[in-house]
Design a protein around this nucleic acid. Structure first.
Length: 306
DNA sequence: AGTGTATCCTGCAGGC
DNA sequence: TGCCTGCAGGATACAC
């Protein structure tokens, strides 16, 4: 599901409506998305007087609790919301907290103004109340509930981020960095690319696309990819991710932007999901193979296994 | 250090 | 029409 381009599109789409806004409530419909009890989650979010809508809707004497969204971004496939107390003077160093949203296979993070006439999301899992004008909600929607939402202190966020590999669209991710990282692993390149500890944000779709563009068979051992091949892989990985971001991501089934729109990169796919269809380069039918329990799509002519 | 398998869960497409 | 099966973009834990 949502990979780097989809998470990036969602983060960008949330900035305009939500940056600087405050959250003042949370309703947890599916606690299995959280790593703590809903009451604990709400307390960590808003403080111990927090109102948890789904458990205690009436707490008339609770003091108003709210937090401000001071940054929205992405790390790998995760959407990141940085939160702080709203009434803290800017010069005072306050411990921020970071909401990390992993969208799993079918997760959506949707901004919904209260006057939005479109139908409400069908599978809400966690709903955050957004105060101020316009009033609305930030809805985490996830039919399959493979996603996860965690609230981390900044130090814990930094430690978690350290466990992920480099960002492929960061300028520091050079062809040399990639070639060096590849040289130590015997994993098939498709598996290597899917490993978030090695490189952050690549999933099955863009792994197939990058290998196809670089004319590298998906089962090629990573350490065999060097020199010009490593340079091609770097170039194609970066370009396919950038292109997909520019297209608002790939909607095969579940993915939507923060506004509920479909992406457009599914129309640009060269290999993924195109079994038996002609390779755009040479016309050979695209093949599908399964290894590590996942499909890989490739052109047997452009991407020979050697 | 690898691979294969199972697991979480629901929706949907295809076969019969 | 309806039932059944298999499959899906992710992450992780386990045995081998």
């Amino acid at each position: 599901m949502p990979e780097l381009p989809e998470a990036e599109t969602i983060a960008r789409g949330l900035r305009a409506p939500l940056l600087g806004r405050t959250l003042d409530g949370v309703e947890v419909i599916h606690p299995d998305l959280l790593d703590v009890e809903p009451a604990v989650f709400a307390a960590e979010l808003f403080g111990s007087n927090a109102r948890l809508d789904s458990i205690s809707p009436q707490r008339p004497h609770a003091r108003p609790c709210s937090i401000r969204i001071v940054d929205i971004g992405r790390r790998g496939k995760n959407v990141i919301l940085v939160l702080t107390a709203p009434d803290t003077p800017p010069d005072e160093s306050t411990p921020n907290r970071v909401l990390v949203v992993n969208l799993g296979m079918s997760g959506r993070l949707l901004w919904r103004s209260d006057n939005d006439p479109s139908p409400a999301p069908s599978h809400p899992a966690v709903i955050f109340r957004v105060s101020g004008a316009p009033e609305g909600t930030l809805v985490y929607h996830d039919p399959r509930r493979f996603g996860r939402i965690r609230l981390l202190a900044e130090s814990a966020f930094a430690a978690w981020s350290e466990t992920l590999g480099p960002e492929p669209l960061d300028p520091s991710f050079t062809p040399e960095v990639l070639a060096q990282a590849l040289s130590t692993s015997a994993s098939p390149i498709r598996s290597w690319l899917l490993d978030q500890r090695r490189i952050a944000g690549v999933g099955n779709i863009y792994a197939s696309e990058a290998c196809h563009g670089a004319r590298i068979h998906p089962q090629t051992p990573a350490r065999n990819i060097k020199g010009p091949a490593a340079a091609r892989l770097h170039e194609n990985l970066v370009s396919v991710l950038e292109h997909a971001v520019a297209q608002g991501g790939t909607t095969l089934r579940d993915y939507r932007t923060a506004q509920g729109w479909e992406g457009a990169f599914q129309h640009k796919l060269q290999a993924y999901g195109r079994e038996t269809l002609p390779c755009p380069n040479c016309g050979t039918p695209i093949k599908r193979i399964v290894f590590s329990n996942r499909s890989a799509f490739f052109c047997p002519t452009c991407q020979p296994f050697d």
